[in-house]
Write a protein that binds this DNA or RNA. Structure first.
Lengths: 199, 199
DNA sequence: GTTTTTATAGTGCAGATGCACGATAACATT
DNA sequence: AATGTTATCGTGCATCTGCACTATAAAAAC
Protein backbone atom coordinates (compact mmCIF):
# COMPACT_ATOMS: atom_id res chain seq x y z
CA UNK A 1 0.00 0.00 0.00
CA UNK A 2 1.16 3.52 -0.72
CA UNK A 3 2.75 5.31 2.13
CA UNK A 4 1.53 8.82 1.50
CA UNK A 5 -2.20 9.24 1.72
CA UNK A 6 -4.14 12.46 1.53
CA UNK A 7 -5.61 12.59 5.01
CA UNK A 8 -8.18 15.20 4.11
CA UNK A 9 -9.38 13.05 1.22
CA UNK A 10 -9.61 9.99 3.48
CA UNK A 11 -11.60 11.92 6.05
CA UNK A 12 -13.99 13.03 3.35
CA UNK A 13 -14.51 9.46 2.19
CA UNK A 14 -15.26 8.45 5.76
CA UNK A 15 -17.63 11.40 6.07
CA UNK A 16 -19.46 10.24 2.95
CA UNK A 17 -19.92 6.82 4.49
CA UNK A 18 -21.21 8.51 7.61
CA UNK A 19 -23.66 10.54 5.53
CA UNK A 20 -25.12 7.43 3.97
CA UNK A 21 -25.62 5.77 7.32
CA UNK A 22 -26.95 8.88 9.08
CA UNK A 23 -29.38 9.62 6.25
CA UNK A 24 -30.70 6.09 5.92
CA UNK A 25 -30.55 4.74 9.44
CA UNK A 26 -30.13 7.79 11.68
CA UNK A 27 -27.33 9.18 13.81
CA UNK A 28 -27.96 6.38 16.29
CA UNK A 29 -26.70 3.90 13.72
CA UNK A 30 -23.51 5.88 13.21
CA UNK A 31 -21.03 3.69 15.06
CA UNK A 32 -17.35 3.33 14.35
CA UNK A 33 -17.91 -0.20 13.09
CA UNK A 34 -20.84 0.75 10.87
CA UNK A 35 -19.00 3.67 9.31
CA UNK A 36 -15.92 1.55 8.75
CA UNK A 37 -17.94 -1.20 7.07
CA UNK A 38 -19.78 1.32 4.90
CA UNK A 39 -16.47 2.89 3.88
CA UNK A 40 -14.98 -0.52 3.22
CA UNK A 41 -12.16 -0.12 5.71
CA UNK A 42 -11.35 -1.43 9.14
CA UNK A 43 -12.63 0.23 12.28
CA UNK A 44 -9.11 0.98 13.38
CA UNK A 45 -8.50 3.03 10.28
CA UNK A 46 -11.45 5.22 11.14
CA UNK A 47 -9.93 5.74 14.56
CA UNK A 48 -6.61 6.45 12.90
CA UNK A 49 -8.07 9.41 11.04
CA UNK A 50 -10.40 10.48 13.83
CA UNK A 51 -8.94 10.08 17.33
CA UNK A 52 -12.41 10.15 18.86
CA UNK A 53 -15.88 9.52 17.48
CA UNK A 54 -16.86 13.07 18.27
CA UNK A 55 -14.11 14.35 15.99
CA UNK A 56 -15.61 12.32 13.19
CA UNK A 57 -19.09 13.66 13.86
CA UNK A 58 -17.85 17.23 13.95
CA UNK A 59 -15.84 16.84 10.78
CA UNK A 60 -18.80 15.32 8.98
CA UNK A 61 -21.00 18.21 10.07
CA UNK A 62 -18.52 20.78 8.82
CA UNK A 63 -18.16 18.85 5.60
CA UNK A 64 -21.92 18.85 5.10
CA UNK A 65 -22.10 22.60 5.61
CA UNK A 66 -19.26 22.96 3.14
CA UNK A 67 -20.92 20.76 0.50
CA UNK A 68 -24.26 22.50 0.90
CA UNK A 69 -22.60 25.88 0.62
CA UNK A 70 -20.84 24.82 -2.57
CA UNK A 71 -24.07 23.62 -4.12
CA UNK A 72 -25.83 26.82 -3.13
CA UNK A 73 -23.02 29.04 -4.36
CA UNK A 74 -23.15 27.41 -7.78
CA UNK A 75 -26.86 28.06 -8.31
CA UNK A 76 -26.92 31.49 -6.72
CA UNK A 77 -23.75 32.51 -8.55
CA UNK A 78 -25.31 31.83 -11.93
CA UNK A 79 -28.40 33.80 -10.96
CA UNK A 80 -26.35 36.70 -9.64
CA UNK A 81 -24.65 36.99 -13.00
CA UNK A 82 -27.97 37.74 -14.67
CA UNK A 83 -28.64 40.66 -12.33
CA UNK A 84 -32.24 39.52 -12.01
CA UNK A 85 -33.18 39.69 -8.33
CA UNK A 86 -36.12 37.40 -8.81
CA UNK A 87 -33.86 34.74 -10.29
CA UNK A 88 -31.45 35.15 -7.37
CA UNK A 89 -34.19 34.74 -4.80
CA UNK A 90 -35.43 31.70 -6.68
CA UNK A 91 -31.91 30.28 -6.68
CA UNK A 92 -31.51 30.89 -2.96
CA UNK A 93 -34.67 28.95 -2.22
CA UNK A 94 -33.90 26.22 -4.74
CA UNK A 95 -30.52 25.77 -3.08
CA UNK A 96 -32.18 25.00 0.23
CA UNK A 97 -34.81 22.61 -1.09
CA UNK A 98 -33.87 18.96 -1.64
CA UNK A 99 -34.48 18.67 -5.38
CA UNK A 100 -32.32 15.66 -6.23
CA UNK A 101 -31.20 12.55 -4.40
CA UNK A 102 -27.90 14.08 -3.35
CA UNK A 103 -29.57 17.12 -1.79
CA UNK A 104 -32.07 14.84 -0.10
CA UNK A 105 -29.23 12.92 1.48
CA UNK A 106 -27.54 16.05 2.76
CA UNK A 107 -30.84 17.42 4.09
CA UNK A 108 -31.57 14.19 5.93
CA UNK A 109 -28.14 14.33 7.51
CA UNK A 110 -28.69 17.94 8.45
CA UNK A 111 -31.98 17.10 10.13
CA UNK A 112 -30.39 14.26 12.04
CA UNK A 113 -27.75 16.60 13.40
CA UNK A 114 -30.34 19.28 13.95
CA UNK A 115 -32.44 17.03 16.15
CA UNK A 116 -29.40 15.94 18.12
CA UNK A 117 -28.53 19.58 18.66
CA UNK A 118 -31.98 20.84 19.57
CA UNK A 119 -32.23 18.20 22.23
CA UNK A 120 -28.74 18.88 23.49
CA UNK A 121 -29.68 22.21 25.02
CA UNK A 122 -28.08 24.95 22.94
CA UNK A 123 -27.58 24.26 19.27
CA UNK A 124 -24.29 24.57 17.46
CA UNK A 125 -23.56 28.15 16.37
CA UNK A 126 -23.67 26.91 12.77
CA UNK A 127 -27.17 25.55 13.11
CA UNK A 128 -28.33 28.80 14.55
CA UNK A 129 -26.75 30.86 11.79
CA UNK A 130 -28.06 29.01 8.74
CA UNK A 131 -31.50 30.59 8.64
CA UNK A 132 -30.38 34.16 9.46
CA UNK A 133 -27.78 33.85 6.74
CA UNK A 134 -30.43 32.94 4.21
CA UNK A 135 -32.65 35.75 5.45
CA UNK A 136 -29.90 38.33 4.99
CA UNK A 137 -29.24 37.14 1.46
CA UNK A 138 -32.91 37.26 0.53
CA UNK A 139 -33.52 40.61 2.20
CA UNK A 140 -30.60 42.12 0.31
CA UNK A 141 -32.01 41.03 -3.01
CA UNK A 142 -35.48 42.25 -2.13
CA UNK A 143 -34.13 45.68 -1.19
CA UNK A 144 -32.24 45.79 -4.44
CA UNK A 145 -35.40 44.95 -6.33
CA UNK A 146 -37.27 47.65 -4.44
CA UNK A 147 -34.78 50.23 -5.62
CA UNK A 148 -35.46 49.12 -9.19
CA UNK A 149 -39.22 49.18 -8.57
CA UNK A 150 -39.51 45.47 -9.22
CA UNK A 151 -40.80 44.99 -5.70
CA UNK A 152 -43.26 47.35 -4.05
CA UNK A 153 -41.47 49.69 -1.63
CA UNK A 154 -44.38 49.39 0.77
CA UNK A 155 -43.31 45.86 1.65
CA UNK A 156 -40.99 45.14 4.55
CA UNK A 157 -37.94 43.52 2.97
CA UNK A 158 -36.79 41.77 6.13
CA UNK A 159 -40.19 40.35 6.96
CA UNK A 160 -40.65 39.20 3.37
CA UNK A 161 -37.26 37.51 3.57
CA UNK A 162 -38.24 35.92 6.88
CA UNK A 163 -41.44 34.61 5.35
CA UNK A 164 -39.63 33.12 2.36
CA UNK A 165 -36.80 31.61 4.38
CA UNK A 166 -39.04 29.97 6.97
CA UNK A 167 -41.33 28.71 4.23
CA UNK A 168 -38.32 27.11 2.58
CA UNK A 169 -37.26 25.56 5.87
CA UNK A 170 -40.74 24.18 6.37
CA UNK A 171 -40.80 22.85 2.84
CA UNK A 172 -37.58 20.95 3.47
CA UNK A 173 -39.19 19.03 6.29
CA UNK A 174 -42.38 18.68 4.27
CA UNK A 175 -40.52 17.15 1.35
CA UNK A 176 -38.44 14.83 3.50
CA UNK A 177 -41.52 13.58 5.30
CA UNK A 178 -43.34 13.01 2.04
CA UNK A 179 -46.02 15.64 2.54
CA UNK A 180 -44.73 17.67 -0.40
CA UNK A 181 -43.08 16.77 -3.66
CA UNK A 182 -40.21 18.85 -4.98
CA UNK A 183 -42.50 19.88 -7.85
CA UNK A 184 -45.24 21.08 -5.55
CA UNK A 185 -42.65 23.04 -3.60
CA UNK A 186 -41.53 24.74 -6.79
CA UNK A 187 -45.09 25.72 -7.61
CA UNK A 188 -45.49 27.22 -4.16
CA UNK A 189 -42.23 29.13 -4.38
CA UNK A 190 -43.19 30.47 -7.79
CA UNK A 191 -46.58 31.52 -6.49
CA UNK A 192 -44.98 33.50 -3.69
CA UNK A 193 -42.44 35.04 -6.03
CA UNK A 194 -45.31 36.15 -8.22
CA UNK A 195 -46.87 37.91 -5.25
CA UNK A 196 -43.63 39.51 -4.17
CA UNK A 197 -42.38 40.79 -7.52
CA UNK A 198 -44.28 43.15 -9.79
CA UNK A 199 -45.56 41.64 -13.03
CA UNK B 1 -48.84 -0.15 47.63
CA UNK B 2 -52.28 -0.30 46.09
CA UNK B 3 -53.01 -3.31 44.05
CA UNK B 4 -55.08 -1.72 41.34
CA UNK B 5 -53.21 0.82 39.29
CA UNK B 6 -54.48 2.71 36.29
CA UNK B 7 -52.21 1.33 33.62
CA UNK B 8 -52.99 4.07 31.17
CA UNK B 9 -52.11 6.69 33.76
CA UNK B 10 -48.85 4.94 34.56
CA UNK B 11 -47.92 4.76 30.91
CA UNK B 12 -48.58 8.47 30.60
CA UNK B 13 -46.31 9.22 33.52
CA UNK B 14 -43.60 7.14 31.94
CA UNK B 15 -44.18 8.94 28.65
CA UNK B 16 -43.74 12.29 30.42
CA UNK B 17 -40.41 11.13 31.78
CA UNK B 18 -39.47 10.05 28.27
CA UNK B 19 -40.44 13.48 26.92
CA UNK B 20 -38.17 15.25 29.37
CA UNK B 21 -35.22 13.06 28.45
CA UNK B 22 -35.86 13.12 24.71
CA UNK B 23 -36.29 16.90 24.69
CA UNK B 24 -33.22 17.67 26.77
CA UNK B 25 -30.79 14.91 25.86
CA UNK B 26 -32.14 13.42 22.65
CA UNK B 27 -33.72 10.13 21.69
CA UNK B 28 -30.32 8.50 22.02
CA UNK B 29 -30.45 9.12 25.76
CA UNK B 30 -33.84 7.45 26.02
CA UNK B 31 -32.84 4.16 27.61
CA UNK B 32 -34.95 2.00 29.87
CA UNK B 33 -32.76 2.89 32.83
CA UNK B 34 -32.79 6.62 32.13
CA UNK B 35 -36.55 6.74 31.72
CA UNK B 36 -37.06 4.71 34.87
CA UNK B 37 -34.77 7.00 36.87
CA UNK B 38 -36.49 10.11 35.49
CA UNK B 39 -39.88 8.66 36.38
CA UNK B 40 -38.63 7.67 39.81
CA UNK B 41 -39.37 3.98 39.36
CA UNK B 42 -37.33 0.87 38.71
CA UNK B 43 -36.39 -0.23 35.27
CA UNK B 44 -38.41 -3.40 35.67
CA UNK B 45 -41.54 -1.42 36.16
CA UNK B 46 -41.04 0.33 32.86
CA UNK B 47 -40.71 -3.08 31.27
CA UNK B 48 -43.80 -4.18 33.12
CA UNK B 49 -45.89 -1.51 31.42
CA UNK B 50 -44.07 -1.69 28.10
CA UNK B 51 -43.03 -5.21 27.09
CA UNK B 52 -40.44 -3.82 24.69
CA UNK B 53 -38.69 -0.49 24.39
CA UNK B 54 -40.26 0.06 21.01
CA UNK B 55 -43.72 -0.15 22.56
CA UNK B 56 -42.73 2.64 24.92
CA UNK B 57 -41.42 4.80 22.07
CA UNK B 58 -44.56 4.26 20.03
CA UNK B 59 -46.86 5.01 22.95
CA UNK B 60 -44.95 8.20 23.74
CA UNK B 61 -45.24 9.32 20.14
CA UNK B 62 -48.98 8.74 20.10
CA UNK B 63 -49.29 10.52 23.42
CA UNK B 64 -47.40 13.53 22.07
CA UNK B 65 -49.68 13.75 19.06
CA UNK B 66 -52.64 13.52 21.42
CA UNK B 67 -51.34 16.26 23.72
CA UNK B 68 -50.50 18.55 20.83
CA UNK B 69 -53.92 18.00 19.32
CA UNK B 70 -55.60 18.86 22.62
CA UNK B 71 -53.62 22.08 22.93
CA UNK B 72 -54.42 23.02 19.36
CA UNK B 73 -58.10 22.17 19.71
CA UNK B 74 -58.40 24.46 22.72
CA UNK B 75 -57.00 27.52 20.99
CA UNK B 76 -58.66 26.90 17.65
CA UNK B 77 -61.96 26.07 19.32
CA UNK B 78 -62.09 29.45 21.05
CA UNK B 79 -61.30 31.20 17.78
CA UNK B 80 -63.91 29.19 15.88
CA UNK B 81 -66.55 30.39 18.32
CA UNK B 82 -65.92 33.98 17.28
CA UNK B 83 -66.58 33.22 13.63
CA UNK B 84 -63.61 35.37 12.68
CA UNK B 85 -61.58 33.46 10.08
CA UNK B 86 -58.53 35.59 10.68
CA UNK B 87 -58.59 34.70 14.36
CA UNK B 88 -58.96 31.02 13.48
CA UNK B 89 -56.01 31.09 11.12
CA UNK B 90 -53.99 32.89 13.77
CA UNK B 91 -54.99 30.25 16.31
CA UNK B 92 -54.00 27.42 13.95
CA UNK B 93 -50.54 28.88 13.53
CA UNK B 94 -50.17 29.78 17.20
CA UNK B 95 -51.04 26.18 18.05
CA UNK B 96 -48.11 24.94 16.00
CA UNK B 97 -45.54 27.41 17.29
CA UNK B 98 -43.76 26.69 20.58
CA UNK B 99 -44.86 29.70 22.60
CA UNK B 100 -44.38 28.42 26.15
CA UNK B 101 -42.01 25.97 27.78
CA UNK B 102 -44.46 23.09 27.55
CA UNK B 103 -44.97 23.56 23.83
CA UNK B 104 -41.22 23.86 23.39
CA UNK B 105 -40.78 20.52 25.10
CA UNK B 106 -43.35 18.80 22.90
CA UNK B 107 -41.86 20.37 19.77
CA UNK B 108 -38.38 19.21 20.70
CA UNK B 109 -39.70 15.70 21.20
CA UNK B 110 -41.48 15.87 17.88
CA UNK B 111 -38.30 16.90 16.11
CA UNK B 112 -36.37 14.11 17.76
CA UNK B 113 -38.88 11.57 16.49
CA UNK B 114 -39.06 13.33 13.16
CA UNK B 115 -35.34 13.00 12.61
CA UNK B 116 -35.42 9.36 13.60
CA UNK B 117 -38.23 8.78 11.11
CA UNK B 118 -36.78 10.72 8.21
CA UNK B 119 -33.63 8.70 8.45
CA UNK B 120 -35.52 5.43 8.79
CA UNK B 121 -36.63 5.41 5.19
CA UNK B 122 -40.34 6.14 5.07
CA UNK B 123 -41.80 8.25 7.83
CA UNK B 124 -44.67 7.26 10.07
CA UNK B 125 -48.05 7.96 8.49
CA UNK B 126 -48.70 10.38 11.36
CA UNK B 127 -45.64 12.46 10.59
CA UNK B 128 -46.64 12.63 6.97
CA UNK B 129 -50.19 13.73 7.77
CA UNK B 130 -49.51 16.56 10.22
CA UNK B 131 -48.72 19.26 7.66
CA UNK B 132 -51.48 18.35 5.18
CA UNK B 133 -53.94 18.38 8.05
CA UNK B 134 -52.91 21.90 8.97
CA UNK B 135 -53.08 22.95 5.32
CA UNK B 136 -56.63 21.65 4.96
CA UNK B 137 -57.73 23.53 8.07
CA UNK B 138 -56.16 26.76 6.91
CA UNK B 139 -57.42 26.45 3.35
CA UNK B 140 -60.95 25.91 4.63
CA UNK B 141 -60.86 29.10 6.65
CA UNK B 142 -59.36 31.06 3.78
CA UNK B 143 -62.11 29.89 1.43
CA UNK B 144 -64.68 30.85 4.01
CA UNK B 145 -63.14 34.30 4.27
CA UNK B 146 -63.15 34.61 0.51
CA UNK B 147 -66.88 34.02 0.44
CA UNK B 148 -67.27 36.88 2.93
CA UNK B 149 -64.91 39.06 0.90
CA UNK B 150 -62.45 39.25 3.74
CA UNK B 151 -59.84 37.62 1.53
CA UNK B 152 -59.41 38.50 -2.12
CA UNK B 153 -60.98 35.82 -4.33
CA UNK B 154 -58.08 36.16 -6.75
CA UNK B 155 -55.82 34.36 -4.29
CA UNK B 156 -55.36 30.59 -4.40
CA UNK B 157 -56.64 29.37 -1.05
CA UNK B 158 -54.67 26.13 -1.09
CA UNK B 159 -51.39 27.75 -2.04
CA UNK B 160 -51.90 30.46 0.58
CA UNK B 161 -52.54 27.73 3.13
CA UNK B 162 -49.42 25.89 1.98
CA UNK B 163 -47.37 29.04 2.35
CA UNK B 164 -48.66 29.68 5.87
CA UNK B 165 -48.32 26.10 7.03
CA UNK B 166 -44.78 25.63 5.75
CA UNK B 167 -43.80 29.01 7.17
CA UNK B 168 -45.09 27.87 10.55
CA UNK B 169 -43.16 24.61 10.25
CA UNK B 170 -40.02 26.52 9.42
CA UNK B 171 -40.60 28.89 12.31
CA UNK B 172 -40.81 25.96 14.69
CA UNK B 173 -37.32 24.85 13.76
CA UNK B 174 -36.17 28.46 13.74
CA UNK B 175 -37.41 29.03 17.26
CA UNK B 176 -36.01 25.77 18.59
CA UNK B 177 -32.62 26.51 17.12
CA UNK B 178 -32.61 30.02 18.57
CA UNK B 179 -32.72 31.86 15.26
CA UNK B 180 -36.16 33.27 16.03
CA UNK B 181 -37.91 34.28 19.21
CA UNK B 182 -41.56 33.47 19.76
CA UNK B 183 -42.26 37.21 19.64
CA UNK B 184 -40.54 37.68 16.30
CA UNK B 185 -42.51 34.72 14.98
CA UNK B 186 -45.74 36.41 16.07
CA UNK B 187 -44.77 39.59 14.27
CA UNK B 188 -44.08 37.63 11.12
CA UNK B 189 -47.36 35.74 11.33
CA UNK B 190 -49.25 38.97 11.87
CA UNK B 191 -47.49 40.57 8.92
CA UNK B 192 -48.57 37.73 6.66
CA UNK B 193 -52.10 37.78 8.01
CA UNK B 194 -52.23 41.47 7.19
CA UNK B 195 -51.27 40.69 3.63
CA UNK B 196 -53.74 37.87 3.30
CA UNK B 197 -56.81 39.51 4.82
CA UNK B 198 -58.38 42.75 3.61
CA UNK B 199 -58.01 45.70 5.94
C1' DG C 1 20.56 -2.21 2.72
C1' DT C 2 19.29 -0.96 6.99
C1' DT C 3 16.30 1.88 9.67
C1' DT C 4 12.53 4.77 10.51
C1' DT C 5 8.01 6.31 9.43
C1' DT C 6 3.25 5.54 7.95
C1' DA C 7 -0.92 3.23 6.80
C1' DT C 8 -3.47 -0.64 7.91
C1' DA C 9 -5.34 -4.68 10.67
C1' DG C 10 -6.32 -7.70 14.98
C1' DT C 11 -7.66 -8.19 19.72
C1' DG C 12 -9.11 -7.22 24.20
C1' DC C 13 -11.75 -4.54 27.58
C1' DA C 14 -14.70 -1.76 30.55
C1' DG C 15 -19.10 0.16 30.36
C1' DA C 16 -23.80 0.46 28.79
C1' DT C 17 -28.10 -1.47 26.89
C1' DG C 18 -32.31 -4.32 26.23
C1' DC C 19 -34.24 -8.14 27.97
C1' DA C 20 -35.27 -12.59 30.69
C1' DC C 21 -35.75 -14.78 34.98
C1' DG C 22 -36.73 -15.02 39.67
C1' DA C 23 -38.25 -12.92 44.27
C1' DT C 24 -41.60 -10.49 47.29
C1' DA C 25 -44.86 -7.56 49.41
C1' DA C 26 -49.50 -5.61 49.07
C1' DC C 27 -54.00 -6.31 47.92
C1' DA C 28 -58.25 -9.09 46.30
C1' DT C 29 -60.97 -13.20 46.44
C1' DT C 30 -62.81 -16.87 48.60
C1' DA D 1 -57.74 -17.34 57.32
C1' DA D 2 -56.00 -19.22 53.16
C1' DT D 3 -54.94 -18.52 48.43
C1' DG D 4 -54.21 -16.31 44.30
C1' DT D 5 -53.17 -12.09 41.74
C1' DT D 6 -50.88 -7.80 40.84
C1' DA D 7 -47.44 -4.34 41.25
C1' DT D 8 -42.87 -3.74 42.27
C1' DC D 9 -37.88 -4.76 42.73
C1' DG D 10 -33.06 -7.15 42.09
C1' DT D 11 -29.92 -9.61 39.30
C1' DG D 12 -27.69 -11.75 35.65
C1' DC D 13 -26.61 -12.05 30.65
C1' DA D 14 -25.61 -11.67 25.74
C1' DT D 15 -24.61 -7.96 22.84
C1' DC D 16 -22.80 -3.75 21.28
C1' DT D 17 -20.01 0.47 21.67
C1' DG D 18 -15.94 3.35 21.88
C1' DC D 19 -11.38 3.03 22.79
C1' DA D 20 -6.51 1.30 23.93
C1' DC D 21 -2.87 -1.59 22.94
C1' DT D 22 -0.21 -4.29 19.91
C1' DA D 23 1.32 -6.06 15.45
C1' DT D 24 2.90 -5.64 10.64
C1' DA D 25 3.51 -4.66 5.85
C1' DA D 26 4.87 -1.05 2.74
C1' DA D 27 7.28 2.86 1.62
C1' DA D 28 10.53 6.53 2.62
C1' DA D 29 15.05 8.02 4.50
C1' DC D 30 19.49 7.41 5.10
Amino acid sequence: MPKRVDHEQRRREIAEALFRIAAHRGLTAVTLRAVAAEAGISMNLVQYYFPAKDDMLRFAWQRMVELSAERAAAGVGRALATGDERAVVRAYLAAVLPSDERARLLCAVQIAYFAADVTRGGAQPDQEALLPHLVRGLAGQIRLAQKGDRVSPSLDATLEADALATMAAGLVTGILVGAYTAERASVLVEYRLGQLFNA
